[in-house]
Amino acid sequence: MERTVTVVPEDGLHARPAAKFVETANEYDADVRVAADGDDPVDAASMLAVTSLGVASGDDVTIVAEGEEAEAALDALEELLSTPETEA
């Protein structure tokens, strides 16, 4: 299954949002891949791969998940990308 999400955090898929994204992708029993518009999907559980996408705030990404917890993984990742970064 897959889902297209607009990246809300100001940093884009970079710095803390990227770290959280990769951590979250690693938490589920699912194979998760992520693609920036039109590009080939890359391993969402790899920081290097996610950084390579160069996704800025406001860009769309497509997340593809397969496996037992695919839906839960997509839900968590969508929420993360849809939430502006708060002061932490």
Binding site: G12, H14, V42, L48, A49, T51, S52, L53, G54, A56
Partner: peptide, 16 residues
Amino acid sequence: GEEHLQLLSSLSRALM
């Protein structure tokens, strides 16, 4: 501007 992200992205892509 976005130069930062672009360089980071190109470099990461190469290093994969």
